[in-house]
Write a protein that binds this DNA or RNA. Structure first.
Length: 419
DNA sequence: TCTGGGGTCCTAGGACCC
DNA sequence: TCTGGGGTCCTAGGACCC
């Protein structure tokens, strides 16, 4: 058996933990740059606010219904997520942290009443962190997802749903639209609908060959999982990433080279940090620029260029140097760039880097320098020490007008309680 | 004026090898 | 007159997830 524990409207719940005045009110959290709605409280959902809707289109509605609007605060959410995951790991021998707000638990051979265990999890996470969660229990990961959906949507389940027994499962799948199933996205749902398949029950009646032809082996696995045959194992170790991307939309569009240099240098350094964190080096780097695709009357330019590095690296200084080289290649004056990014790939373990006869970089020195830099920044806060290329007047920086404090990760932001 | 930021997996087709 | 059969690797594109 698997349990899927999912935090209810996680980002909103994090904000509410530290600001109880947000309870009972419609609350939304916006994406980076205060762009789109990425989390909604139930009250906000009830107002018809859609996931991913651009915030500027909702201004009037926000005012009319006194919707509380928060910029996203990933430091806070990341830390709260860790606290939730720590609590969850006490409830299962194995746990897969699937995303910032979800985890699968291995409940094979647990002799207890699983529904009761689910309720205990809910109460404990609530007590330890203040975050409300839903627990879905099923014999495969896909069925646990289905169960979680029931736990969340039907109020009578009170946040916990155990999906067991053939009859119970069949009845549920007959009511479930195929597009609701984990792994069936919009395109596949539309395709299935065209063939007259509306529900999950109808889907699992289709022959294997047909599913394979139209939805590849991915679709076939989903069918098996819905039938109760587990083929998606728990993934306990997060695999090292094969590509790492750091990109941002700018608070304001940028035409000059200088702010773009600052931005691209910052993204390259961020990639370096992520590479070091998973103890890897990257051999290939892509830099891209984008103009605002929504301004169709503006000239568009979306260049990108990929460079093979002489020797795979994880040093900020080297990554920045190459990223700026590439930036100069692709930049053209006269365009208003809205977004830029750096992607590193061809990632290898740091102890398996292929050297070069003509290497001019003092690698041990870079390594020591980066270690020191990471230690300082860990202790004194993000980017306390950084490369000069990253420093500037920052016109490109994110817009985050409604940012909450970093209650749990910054001493100066720690919460004050008046009694 | 204002529209996010990450990732993964699978397949088909072409290049190349013996 | 006759022109094989088996692989691997890489990339682009499309689907999906949160």
């Amino acid at each position: 058996m698997f349990a899927l524990v999912d935090c209810n409207n996680f980002y909103v719940s994090c904000e509410r933990v530290f600001n109880p005045a947000l309870n009972g009110r419609p609350v939304v959290v916006l994406s980076n740059n205060d762009g789109c709605v990425v989390a909604r409280s139930p009250e906000a959902k009830a107002l018809g606010i859609k996931m991913g809707e651009p915030a500027f289109k909702l201004d009037t509605l926000f005012r009319q219904y006194r919707v509380a609007v928060c910029s996203s605060n990933y430091q806070l959410y990341g830390d709260m997520s860790q606290r939730v995951m720590n609590t969850l790991s006490q409830f299962a021998p194995e746990i897969e942290v699937y995303s910032i707000d979800e985890a699968f638990l291995n409940w094979n051979g647990i002799p207890e009443d699983l529904e009761a265990l689910g309720r205990r999890i809910r109460a404990t996470v609530r007590k330890h962190t203040g975050i409300p969660v839903s627990v879905g229990i099923g014999s495969t990961k896909v069925l646990a997802k289905v169960a979680n959906d029931c736990a969340k949507k039907a109020p009578e389940n009170d946040g916990v749903f155990l999906l067991d027994g053939r009859e119970k499962t069949e009845k549920l799948l007959a009511r479930l639209e195929i597009g609701e199933i984990w792994g069936i996205g919009r395109k596949h749902a539309a395709l299935l609908n065209r063939y007259g398949i509306q529900t999950a029950a109808e889907f699992i009646r289709m022959p294997d060959g047909w599913i394979r032809k139209h939805l590849t082996v991915v679709g076939l696995r989903i069918k098996e999982e819905l039938l109760g045959i587990s083929c998606l194992p728990l993934e306990l170790m997060a695999p090292t990433k094969k590509a790492i991307c750091t990109s941002r939309s700018f608070g304001e569009s940028q035409s000059e080279l200088e702010p773009l240099r600052e931005a691209v240098a910052t993204f390259a350094a961020q990639c370096g940090y992520k590479l070091r964190k998973q103890r890897t080096c990257a051999g290939v780097m892509t830099v891209f620029l984008q103009t605002n695709r929504f301004n169709s009357d503006e000239p568009q330019h979306n260049p990108h260029y990929t460079m093979v590095l002489p020797v795979a690296t994880q040093s900020d200084l080297e990554l920045i140097r190459y990223a700026l080289e590439v930036l100069h290649k692709i930049y053209r004056p006269g365009y208003r760039y809205k977004k830029a990014g750096v992607i590193v790939s061809a990632i290898v373990p740091e102890e398996q880097v292929q050297g070069s006869l003509f290497d001019t970089v003092d690698r041990p020195k870079h390594r020591a320098l980066m270690q020191t830099l990471d230690r300082i920044n860990l202790r004194y806060g993000l980017a306390t020490v950084k490369a000069a290329a990253q420093v500037g007047d920052s016109g490109w920086k994110l817009r985050r007008e409604k940012l909450s404090p970093c209650y749990t990760t910054r001493w100066s932001d720690i919460i004050t309680v008046k009694a």
